[in-house]
Each structure stands twice: as C-alpha cells, then as structure tokens.
Design a protein around this nucleic acid. Structure first.
Length: 560
RNA sequence: UGGGCCGUCGUUCAACGGCAGGACGACGGGUUCUGGCCCCGUUAAUCAAGGUUCGAAUCCUUGCGGCCCAGCCA
C-alpha cells in the first residue's frame, strides 16, 4: 500500500505474519503473493478495509504482490456498478494492484477444462437430482448423507452430459456437476459438493456466453492457483471449506496456495452485514451506498474519514482468530488523530446567537490574521473580519452558569478567539422570552486576544462577524448506530438511531466560501467537518466527520 | 447434540515453558488563545478444575462458554 513510511512502523507480530515467515524460511514459497477477492454484489464497507489492509499490507511488507480479483461467479447478484465502486474504494484506501486486476470470469474457460479433467479422472459426476433431493441426500449435521443414484454414471456419460450442460441444452436446475468425494464425511462441505450449476443468466462481463457457472469453492481455489497466489487469506467462516479447497487443488495437482483464515471485523453499534446494508439502500432508509451515515468506505469517505485513518485503524485492531467486536471509539480516535494533524482550523457557528459589542465603533471592520493551524505554521493564515455585531454559539452562553462553566455569562469575561476580551452586560429577550442578543463591552487593550496586564480568562469562544459571515448547511450525521439490545424487535431497522440525520443552517467565516468537495476543516471546538459535493461555491455543505472530545458536554451529561 | 474453530484488562492485540505488556476506553492531574491536541498518572485480565514441570496464559485431560458448517450464495 502507498503508506507513508511512518505509518505501520510498529507492525505487531501476528499469526499470519508468523506463518508467512515460516513458509518463506522453509522454502515452501519463494515470495508472497496475496489477493483481495470481493464479490461485486454490493459496496465495500469497513469490514473489507481490514481485508484490504491485510492483503495489500502483507504484500508490501514482504515485498510481494497483491491482486484485486472479482469473485464474479454468480451473475444473479453481480453488477458493473459494484465493480466500479469497489475499484475506486480499494484505490482510495491505498491498495495498488498494478496491472493485476482480475476476474474469476477471466478463467471460465480454464475452469471448464479442469472440470472435464476431474470427470475423466472419475472425481466428478453429473447429478440429476433436484435441489430438494440433493439437500435430502446430503444428510444433516449429525446424520450421514447417502449417495445419489447418478453417482455411478460412467466417465463417458458424465462428459457427454457436462458438455451438453455447457452447450445450453438443459434448463436451470436440471443437472449439476458434483465432486465425487465422500457422502458420509463429518464435514458437510465434503459431501459431494456442487461444482457447477446451470444458470441461464446474463453475466455483467461474459454476457450470455455461459449457461453454466462455477461455484465459489470450485472457482476460488483454482483462481488463486492460476494467479500464483501463495497465501489465500479469508475470514473464519471459510474454515470448513479449506478441506475442499485443498482437495480440488490436490485432485488437479496444481500450484497449491495456503488458505489462512482470520476473524472478520465487528464494530460496536454498527451494521456490517452486506444483506442489511442492501436493505438500507434499497428500502430508501439512506440516500445511497455513499450516504455519510453508512459504514461503507464510500460513506466514510464522503463523511471525511481520511484513508490514512482507516489504515491506522486496521493496524491497531490487529488480526487474530478469536471473534472480536472492536469499539467504535477506536475508529473515532484514528480519525481525530489523523485529522488533527492534517486539517486547517476555521470558525463556524452552528446555532448562532447575536452579540453586540456596544463599545466597538459602529460600522468599523478590522481583520485579524488567524493561523490555520495552532501548531503548524506551514498551514498559513487568513484574515478574519471582525465587527460590532457577531455571532457566537448559543451553548456558549448561560444566564445562570454552574461553577465550572468557563464560557460567557452575565458579568463574565471571555476571549473571542484571536480578537478581544468581552464582558457580557445585558441579555435582550424577544417576545417569546428567548435570548435575542447579548450586549457586551470589549477591552480594546486585549486586541489580538491577549491582555497587557496579564490577566487570565478561562474561556475562549469561536465566533463569526454577523454581516460578513456566510450561510452554510451543516449535516450533523450520526453513523447508523444500532441498538445493542434489540430485545424483542426482530427487524434491525427498528433498532437504528432515529435521528441520524439532522441539518442545521450555520454561519461560517468568509475564507471557507470555496472549499473543495472532500476537503476537511476543524471548526475549532465543534469537531471536524467535510465539504460535501452537494455544495456550491458560496454555499458550502458540510458533513460532520467526528466531534472533538468535550469534557464539558460529558460533565453536563453526568449532571443530567 | 457430527465436524471444525475460539476463550488474556470494559474492548482489542501481545507474551509461544521464565517478571502478564501495549493501544483504545474510563477515571484523575499538568499544560493550553480550541474544555481540542499534547504530557503525566490511576484503573483493570489469563473461562473452570485437575495434571505434567523447579516454573504454565502457553503443554496434557476433563468440563463450561462462544462462533462456523446441512445454498444449485460467497
């Protein structure tokens, strides 16, 4: 992957790396070649990020290669839209497959040839039982299966039937090609698994060239083998399939990659099942696969999550064989860590309340030069207009503040960031009794935000000048969190946070007028925000990426 | 209940027969023109019981708990 060198310096020893080293040391493999093999039946989500980082990261660490291969063996579920989106997401995350972007469908001819070989070797046969009969014959987890009456067909018969299957002579479901293994195996996967099924369907790449399609277990190991993969890394649910993976490759005496399984990623409060994500999209519960509330890579990207944060996250969660559910706060930590170092600061007010500084001359405007980053001067600075009337955050004022409240209150003095100290003199209310404006006085000597007499103020507020500030739409998306204790509700849709999308009209400083879509900014204490492509010049739209840690909010929550 | 796999701080990953350690979280403190960042500290774990061993998270046995497999899905 295209990591910066500092990233991933501390590579923790894990069981996969240990095995790869052993394979290299023993001479079993001369180099490392992995692959990331998504099925193009949906968008990639953060669970896939773990696999992408693992496979591409391992290749990079061991100076090997990693392929991108689409496991497109089921035309009913797969679409070109998904392959395009997946390619973009993998590239965004930093996965570089160079010229090795492959498809299982590239190998349909070869796969067919291998199948004829298995038939000739008496290791596969055409079965003409119905799907229901095959299921019944398979037995159960505790009872052995029994052999199909068609299992003893001759090689010639099988070859003839299989060729006619390929020629399109039969209807869907009339026949299947099965491996002749062992109907009483304790591993159900080995009870004469299906290798090919008849499916008269249009494939997104091969069109109607094929009326038969290989099954995953058959296509995957052979695709790995054809590509010269050394380590076929997949998730734990394929453990039982490894025996078949090995059987097929041994039967055909082909290059034999090592399958290694690891625990898939679970994230607290987060839906990571492709089936459910499809439901969210198709049911119209979100705006699309890249809705910023979605845990998809495109959703995360649109929300402003940097790819580096995702890579760091994957490095930190590690890889093991024990089922695990990673706390969402670790992902937030990784986002903040990256964003803190890379995004410029600016001021915005999400819930404005007007402040009139009575001692400041009417009509006067002065510009304060404010650095874009408090610790890194290379970010430069911008002039920010200041005037007699400004807006501050409504929650930055309290009429009857508790003792630990550092912000504005009647009689209290605070600093307007990089501008002046102000003291609140009067609260003006409207007819409904709501606070309409705050009348304040400023200390001219505190110009720039520091007082010559050295007196300290506890609070520093962000602000924007009333007249010169720009309107912006800010979308306060919550990730689509799911209630951890669904109770009796069986539909996961009922367990989602209902207020996941809230939009507010904010005021932002002029310097932000022309932000590029995808660009992130920190609105000081409010958190990180990402410019959305929906915005237009002069009327930006922001998605909230992540909030900052806020001890005050926590304190309030505790008190409540 | 057939087979496969897995049990280490709240979470996650280490320790691979030799002082159970890191990270996130939580809690407390320092610093600060963001109640951010940063810095310091505290908290907290080997599923259970036997056995082997000078010594066990690690090896063995038994039990308990969890996950996966009965698609012509991947």
């Amino acid at each position: 992957m295209s990591h910066t060198p500092s990233e991933n310096e501390k590579v923790v020893q894990d069981f996969i790396r240990t095995r790869i080293k052993a394979d290299l040391a023993s001479g079993r493999f001369a180099s490392v070649h992995t692959r990331f093999p998504p099925e193009p039946n949906g968008y990639l989500h953060i669970g896939h990020a773990k696999s992408i980082c693992l496979n591409f990261g391992l290749a990079r660490e061991f100076d090997g290669k990693c392929n991108l291969r689409f496991d497109d063996t089921n035309p009913a579920k797969e679409e070109q839209e998904y392959v395009d989106a997946i390619r973009e997401d993998v590239r965004w995350l930093g996965g570089d497959w160079e010229d090795r972007g492959f498809y299982a469908s590239d190998y349909f001819d070869k796969l067919y040839g291998f199948a004829e070989r298995l038939i000739r070797d008496g290791k596969a046969y055409v079965d003409s039982l119905s799907a229901e009969e095959i299921r019944a014959y398979r037995g159960t987890l505790t009872e052995a299966g029994k052999e199909s009456p068609y299992r003893s067909r001759s090689v010639e018969q099988n070859l003839d039937l299989f060729r006619r299957m390929r020629a399109g002579e039969f209807k869907d479901g009339e026949h299947v090609l099965r491996a002749k293994i062992n109907m009483v195996s304790p591993n159900v996967v080995m009870r004469d698994p299906t290798l090919y099924r008849i499916r008269h369907a249009v494939h997104h790449r091969t069109g109607d060239a094929w009326p038969i399609y290989p099954m995953y277990d058959y296509a995957h190991c052979l695709s790995d083998s054809i590509e010269g993969i050394t380590h076929s890394i997949c998730t734990l649910e394929f453990e039982n399939n490894r025996e078949l993976y090995d059987w097929i490759l041994d039967a055909l005496k082909l290059h034999h990659p090592q399958q290694i399984e690891f625990a898939r990623l679970n994230l607290t409060r987060t839906v990571l099942s492709k089936r459910k994500l499809i439901q969210l999209v198709q049911g119209g519960h979100v705006r699309g696969w890249d809705d910023p509330r979605m845990p998809t890579l495109s959703g995360l990207r649109r929300r402003g999550c940097p790819p580096e944060a995702l890579r760091e996250f994957c490095a930190r969660i590690g890889v093991a064989r024990a089922d695990s559910t990673v706390d969402y706060s670790l992902l937030e930590f990784c986002m903040r860590e990256r964003l803190n170092a890379t995004t410029r600061r600016a001021m915005a007010v999400l819930d404005p309340v007007k402040v009139v500084i009575e001692t400041y001359p009417e009509g006067q405007v002065e510009h304060f030069d404010m650095p874009f980053h408090p610790e890194d001067s290379s970010f430069g600075s911008r002039p920010v207009p200041f005037a007699r009337e400004i807006y501050i955050e409504r929650e930055d004022f309290m009429e009857n503040p508790p003792s630990k409240y550092y912000r504005l209150a009647p009689g209290a003095e605070v600093r307007l960031r990089y501008a002046y100290y102000i003291t609140c003199k009067e609260v003006v209310r409207n007819a409904d009794g709501e606070i309409a404006e705050l009348r304040c006085v400023h200390d001219p000597a505190s110009r720039g935000g520091a007082s010559p007499d050295g007196r300290k103020v506890k609070g520093t507020l962000h602000w924007v000048a009333a007249e010169t500030s720009l309107p912006a739409e800010v979308r306060l998306h919550e990730p689509l969190f799911v209630d951890e204790n669904p109770g009796a509700r069986e539909n996961f849709l009922d367990c989602l946070n209902p207020d996941s999308l809230r939009t507010v009209g904010a005021r932002i400083e002029p310097a932000l007028a022309d932000m590029r879509a995808g660009e992130c900014v920190q609105f000081e204490r409010l958190g990180y925000f990402c410019a959305d492509p929906d915005g237009s010049p002069g009327a930006p739209v922001f998605n909230r990426t992540v909030t900052l840690k806020d001890p005050w909010a926590k304190q309030q929550k505790r008190g409540a």
